[in-house]
Simulated scan of single mutants.
Amino acid sequence: MQKYSILDLSPVPEGSTTADALQSTLDLARHAEALGYHRFWLAEHHNMPGIASAATSVVIGHVAASTSRIRLGAGGIMLPNHTPLMIAEQFGTLATLYPNRIDLGVGRAPGTDMQTARALRRNMDAGDNFPQDVVELINYFDDAALDATVQAIPGTGTRVPVWILGSSLYGAQLAAYLGLPYAFASHFAPAALEAAAETYRQTFQPSRFLDTPYFMMAAGVFAADTAEEAEFVKSSQLQAFANLRLGRPGKLPRPVRDVEAVVPAPYLASAREALSVSATGTPDTVRDELRALVDRYQPDEMIVTSMIHDPTARKHSFTLAAEALRNLCASPALA
């Protein structure tokens, strides 16, 4: 493994506001930079009371203005919600303001429910234009052709790195075909992780972007000074997953000591399965569980994430995780 990074969903905890959540995101990004994390990515979600990063490019710009080295980007932008030109202009502007620091991960899902997708003016026809949209987007970041009638300004010539994101084999196949880096959403959809990684690596076609495949996997991390405290802080995300499946999304719930008492058993089992690619516990346990994931899936990079109610506990969790991840990158067998 070469690098380690953070995916932040800008969670809005119960008892706080979106303004609080965005300030916590900024604080966490500064903290991540000091800890040596390579990237800090934000994700596009809509109509979700517990997530404050809907205007993803705006939040990225806010964070970029208050950091100096860490790479920033989208993990990701849900491209079917937008025209490629608009995204090229947004991220071209970011890359112009903050050179060599901006990444653009793109996904195929709407990042919301279908009613909200319609409100976003998303194209709702049955056709899948995602591959063509990705190619169009990449072309806007290239030098403009002499006969180009439409350009992304800013954007042209910025060569913003484009990643394909996915939770199934579709994204793996597309990333391999286009020769792009690939990130798998194993932090909430682990079922196809092994097959997607294998498909991507075996079918990868070298391109002007990459000579060899570059695979990033996502993992949850819930680290604390004691095992009991780690399970306590993790209970917020378990509740949030269950609430989403129960059709009652809301702000990130307060943690509880006995999560079995507040979440129906079938929904708790489903949430635990969704979060199964994760490391939970003391620093030693988190180190061992992260090492097991790296040994099994051999990612080039790991991006870690967690929805923890208390911002201070969240920063502490990422502090403990950083030491473990730093050691994994330094290990000759895994570098």
Rank of each mutant, 00 (worst) to 15 (best):
Q23I: 02
E301D: 13
H187S: 14
S10E: 08
I51R: 03
M86D: 09
L252Q: 08
N129C: 02
R118S: 10
G36L: 03
G36V: 03
R121W: 05
A34S: 14
P311Y: 04
I60M: 07
S186N: 09
R121P: 00
L169A: 13
A126E: 14
E194C: 05
E228R: 12
S53T: 12
T199S: 12
V160Q: 02
A88H: 09
N123H: 07
V263E: 06
R296I: 04
H31D: 13
G166A: 07
D125C: 01
L146Y: 06
W163T: 02
V262I: 15
V286A: 11
M302N: 02
D288R: 15
S235C: 09
V134I: 14
T319S: 13
F318P: 05
Q2A: 05
T226D: 07
T96F: 00
T96P: 01
A227Y: 04
D225G: 04
L293T: 05
V63N: 08
Y267W: 12
G107D: 11
E136K: 11
E323M: 00
L7P: 10
G75H: 08
D128Y: 08
T96H: 09
A117M: 06
A145R: 14
G155H: 02
P299M: 08
S186D: 07
A145T: 09
H46E: 09
E44G: 03
A145E: 15
A197V: 15
A64M: 08
N139G: 13
G92E: 03
S236N: 10
S207P: 10
P266R: 01
A95E: 06
S10T: 15
A65M: 06
N47K: 05
V259N: 11
P80G: 07
A322R: 00
P13E: 05
L97T: 00
A223P: 11
D103S: 01
L246E: 10
D125Y: 01
S57I: 04
P190H: 08
Q202A: 11
T93P: 05
A65L: 07
P206L: 11
R30C: 10
P99E: 12
R257N: 10
L174A: 04
H82D: 07
F232L: 15
T96Y: 03
L328W: 02
P190R: 08
T56V: 15
S331Y: 00
W163H: 12
M114D: 08
S276V: 03
K234P: 01
R101Q: 08
G50R: 11
T96N: 01
S186E: 06
Y140I: 12
A109F: 01
M217R: 13
R71L: 06
L328G: 08
P283T: 09
W41D: 01
Q205V: 15
I87K: 05
A109C: 01
V106K: 13
R291P: 08
R254D: 13
R69A: 06
D295S: 06
S207I: 14
V294S: 02
E33Y: 00
G75C: 13
S317C: 12
A224W: 13
R287G: 02
D295I: 09
A183N: 12
A175H: 00
M1F: 06
R291W: 02
A265P: 00
L169N: 15
R108T: 06
L334Q: 06
M48T: 14
V259P: 14
A21P: 10
P80Y: 03
S10M: 07
T285A: 15
V221Y: 09
D8M: 03
L9M: 15
L252T: 12
L72W: 07
Y297D: 07
Y177K: 14
